[in-house]
Measured scan of single mutants.
Amino acid sequence: MAAGGDHGSPDSYRSPLASRYASPEMCFVFSDRYKFRTWRQLWLWLAEAEQTLGLPITDEQIQEMKSNLENIDFKMAAEEEKRLRHDVMAHVHTFGHCCPKAAGIIHLGATSCYVGDNTDLIILRNALDLLLPKLARVISRLADFAKERASLPTLGFTHFQPAQLTTVGKRCCLWIQDLCMDLQNLKRVRDDLRFRGVKGTTGTQASFLQLFEGDDHKVEQLDKMVTEKAGFKRAFIITGQTYTRKVDIEVLSVLASLGASVHKICTDIRLLANLKEMEEPFEKQQIGSSAMPYKRNPMRSERCCSLARHLMTLVMDPLQTASVQWFERTLDDSANRRICLAEAFLTADTILNTLQNISEGLVVYPKVIERRIRQELPFMATENIIMAMVKAGGSRQDCHEKIRVLSQQAASVVKQEGGDNDLIERIQVDAYFSPIHSQLDHLLDPSSFTGRASQQVQRFLEEEVYPLLKPYESVMKVKAELCL
C-alpha cells in the first residue's frame, strides 16, 4: 500500500493539533497551500530580480507567473513527485505547466533550498508574528487579574506546605514575570531571523556568478533584492546548502521555554482548584465526569500541561538535527523538520489560546482563602504575639514557653481530632496574655502579614508589564474561544 493518505478522510490519521486544537490561522501558515504558494512567490521574486539585473526574462513571463501564483494543481504535483521522487522539481514542473512561456526560467540558477529553506524562514517569521500578540493578550488578562487582587491576602506555599502570606495578585505576578520573559525572547528570536537568500547549491553562489558572467556586484544585488522582497532586513552571508540548523534550535528553545512557563502556571491553577481557592472557567453544560456528576475538573489547565510537556520535548529534535548536518548538509534534517517545526508552533498556539481562555474567566473564592488563612495564621502570628507581650512588660522566655504549650495543644486538636485551630481562643482565655487581649485582632490582621506584596504588584505592572504590552494595544480586544 502506498504511503500517505487522504487526510480529510475519517479513515486516515490526522494530527489532533490540526484537527482538534490549533487555530485556523496557525494551521494555514503550515498548510501545503501556504507552503507551495510561497515557493511560487519566491520563484517570481527571483525572476523579477534577475530581470532587473539584466537576464533575458520578459515582462510577459513575469506576468504569467504572477497570474498563476494561486493556480496550484495539487493532484498534478503529487503525481509528479511520485514520478520524480523530488518535491521541488515536482512543483517546478507543475508551475511550468500553467506558465508555459515562463517554464524555462522558473528556478533559474537556484537549488531546492532556495524555495525550501527560504519558505521555512518566512513561515517561522509569520508563525512567530501570530504567537506574539496571543502571548501579549494572556499577559494582559493576567495583569488585569493581578491588579484587581493585588491586596487580597492568601496563604503562600513553599514545598506545598503553608508559608508566609502573600497576595493573590502577587502570586499571579510570578506567572506574568515568566511570560514577559517569554514574550521578550519570542520577539528577540523573531527579529534575529535572517533570510537564507540566493546562495546556490553549497552556499557559494557559483551558479549565479556564472549567470551574471562573473559580476560579483550583481550577485550581491540579486541576494539583497530577493531578501528585501521577502520582507527581511538581512540575509546570511555564510550558508551551506541550507541555512544553519542552529536557527531551528533557537526558535524551538524559546517555544519550549514558553511551554515550561505555561505548565507551571496551569499546575498552580490545578492545585488551587483542589484547594477550592480558584477555578478555571466551567461552562453551564460542561460535564466533569461521566460517573461523578459533582466533579469540576480543571480540564483546560490539564490540557495545557499535557501539550506543554510535548512542546518542551520537541527542542531535542533540532538539537540532534543540527549535530548531524555533515559538511554542507545531509538530508537527516528533512523529514524531522517537516514534523517538529509545525508541531512546535501548533502546540504553542494551542496552549496560548487555551491559557487566554482560562485567564479571561478565572474565578476566585475569597471566603475559602480566608478560612485557610484562619487555619494557619495563628501559628504564624506567634512571633508577633511574643513581641507584643514583651512590649507590655512580659518575659520573652516565659511567653515563648506559654505559646509553645498552647500551640501544641491547638495542633493536637487540628491533627488528632480534625478540629479547627483554636490557638487564639486559648490565648484569649489565658490570664497571662490579658495585657494584649485587646491587640489580638490587630495582630491577626492578614494584611499585616503580606509585606509589600501589593506595592510590588503595582510597581511591576507599571514599570515592566504595561510598557512591554504597549506595541500590542491594537490587538488586545480579541477574545479566545474554545470549541473543545
Rank of each mutant, 00 (worst) to 15 (best):
Ile436Asp: 04
Cys180Arg: 02
Ser454Glu: 12
Met316Trp: 13
Thr450Ser: 03
Ile427Gly: 07
Ile176Ala: 08
Ile237Thr: 11
Ala411Arg: 05
Phe327Leu: 09
Gly116Val: 14
Asp430Leu: 07
Ser23Tyr: 07
Leu468Cys: 14
Asp317Phe: 01
Ala453Met: 02
Ala381Asp: 06
Asn297Ser: 00
Leu444Thr: 07
Asp248Gln: 00
Val168Ile: 06
Arg296Gln: 11
His442Asn: 14
Leu155Gln: 01
Arg141Lys: 15
Met387Gln: 15
Ala392Asn: 10
His217Arg: 12
Leu252Tyr: 04
His86Ala: 01
Gly197Leu: 01
Ala3Thr: 13
Pro366Met: 03
Ser15Gly: 15
Ala392Pro: 04
Asn336Gln: 06
Cys173Lys: 01
Tyr21Gln: 02
Val414Trp: 06
Leu53Ile: 14
Glu277Phe: 01
Arg459His: 09
Lys264Gln: 07
Ser12Leu: 10
Val390Leu: 03
Ala49Ser: 12
Pro10Cys: 14
Phe449Thr: 02
Ser412Phe: 14
Ala3Arg: 15
Cys98Tyr: 13
Glu328Asp: 06
Ser407Cys: 10
Asn421Pro: 13
Gln325Phe: 12
Val29Met: 15
Arg404Gln: 08
Ile105Tyr: 11
Gly54Cys: 09
Asp215Val: 13
Phe95Ala: 09
Ala273Ser: 13
Arg459Tyr: 13
Asn357Ile: 07
Tyr13Phe: 10
Ser448Gln: 14
Asp182Leu: 01
Tyr243Val: 15
Leu53Asp: 02
Asp6Gly: 07
Leu128Ser: 10
Gln221Gly: 07
Met26Val: 07
Ser454Val: 15
Ala102Trp: 01
Ala127Thr: 03
Ala431Gly: 13
Arg83Pro: 09
Glu417Val: 07
Asn297Phe: 00
Gly200Trp: 00
Leu128Ile: 12
Asn421Val: 12
Lys218Ala: 12
Leu84Thr: 04
Arg196Gln: 13
His93Thr: 15
Gln164His: 04
Glu80Ala: 14
Ile122Gly: 02
Phe460Arg: 03
Leu331Phe: 09
Glu343Gly: 12
Phe195Tyr: 12
Gly419Ser: 10
Ser67Gly: 12
Lys470Gln: 12
Asp191Val: 10
Ile403Met: 14
Leu128Ala: 09
Ala49Asn: 02
Thr201His: 00
Arg270Ala: 01
Asp332Pro: 03
Leu461Glu: 01
Ser474Tyr: 13
Leu211Val: 15
Cys98Gln: 14
Leu132Arg: 14
Met380Lys: 05
Val29Cys: 10
Met292Trp: 03
Phe282Leu: 14
Ala344His: 02
Ala260Ser: 15
Val189Trp: 07
Ala291His: 03
Leu193Gly: 07
Gln439Trp: 05
Asn357Lys: 03
Ile57Arg: 01
Arg396Gly: 05
Ser19Val: 04
Trp39Arg: 00
